Simulated scan of single mutants.
Amino acid sequence: MATCYIKAIQTVRPIGPYYLGGWSFCGVVAWEMARQLQVSGQEVALLALIDSYTLTTPLEQIDEAFITNSLLSDLGAIFGSEFSISDKELQQLQPEEQLSRILTEAKPLNILPPDIGIEQMGQLFEVFKANLKAMYDYRPLSYSGQTVLFCTSYEASEGGWSSLAAGTLEVYTIPGDHYGIMQEPHVQVLAKHLETCLESFVRQ
């Protein structure tokens, strides 16, 4: 995934310096992109991780019910609604029945568009599943560039990056939780810190 993104970026900007960043899983992808670019001799001026973290849980311990509930949790949190179905209930349903159940319960909460169908829901699930699998499979290597981590005050943590950052690692705490950091009003605090960091690194 990181390699594909690098190729896409370099069709527009073949040579650095590069400024990379991402929220949650996308921050993990950005870390690997920065590492690969640095190994290839390219300059990465700044890597910004927005409430991203490393994972240590073996993928073998994760079943379809966990993946489905992770998707439900994400959708609910993004749209400000409590949304979950117990693992026990999900385990009693076939995959298509699980998706149908999600559609039935999510649409009245305006978590999903009213016209989304089972086929589109299946595609969304497969993309989410692939991303989740990639995140659990990935074992990050050290990176020696300049990294900025924006973590939330809800669960302030360096996300496991301090042991991997061979270069500088600056940590900023932003109000809110994992989802609120990207929403008003907390995203304004994030934007201000990010703007300051970019201005600082551009001047260097």
Rank of each mutant, 00 (worst) to 15 (best):
M1C: 01
A2V: 05
A2L: 07
A2Y: 06
Y5L: 13
Y5F: 11
Q10H: 07
T11S: 15
P14E: 13
I15W: 04
I15Y: 05
G16Q: 06
Y19H: 12
L20Y: 09
G22T: 14
W23A: 02
S24V: 12
V28S: 10
A30H: 13
W31R: 05
E32D: 15
E32N: 10
M33D: 14
M33Q: 10
A34D: 08
R35A: 04
V39Y: 11
V39F: 08
Q42I: 05
E43K: 08
E43S: 09
V44P: 01
V44I: 04
L46W: 15
L47A: 11
L49P: 02
L49S: 04
Y53E: 08
T54L: 07
T54S: 12
L55Y: 12
L55M: 14
T56H: 07
T56F: 02
T56R: 04
Q61E: 09
Q61D: 03
Q61S: 03
I62P: 07
E64P: 04
A65M: 03
I67W: 09
I67R: 03
L72W: 00
L72P: 00
S73L: 13
D74M: 14
D74I: 14
G76M: 06
F79A: 10
F79V: 11
F79E: 13
G80D: 07
S81H: 11
F83T: 10
I85R: 14
S86M: 10
E89V: 09
E89G: 00
E89F: 06
L90F: 11
Q92W: 01
L93K: 11
P95L: 00
S100I: 08
R101T: 09
I102P: 01
L103N: 01
T104H: 10
L109E: 06
I111D: 03
P113S: 04
D115W: 05
G117N: 00
G117Y: 00
I118C: 00
F125H: 11
K129E: 08
N131C: 15
N131V: 04
L132C: 06
L132I: 08
A134L: 05
R139M: 09
S142F: 04
S144H: 15
Q146S: 05
L149Q: 02
T152Y: 06
T152G: 02
E155P: 09
A156W: 09
S157N: 09
E158K: 07
G160Q: 05
S162K: 07
S162R: 07
A165L: 07
G167A: 08
T168N: 13
V171A: 06
V171L: 11
V171T: 15
I174K: 04
G176D: 04
G180V: 10
G180M: 13
M182I: 12
Q183E: 08
E184A: 14
E184Q: 14
H186Y: 05
H186L: 01
Q188M: 10
H193R: 15
H193Q: 15
L194M: 07
T196F: 15
C197L: 14
C197H: 12
L198N: 02
F201R: 15
V202R: 15
R203N: 12
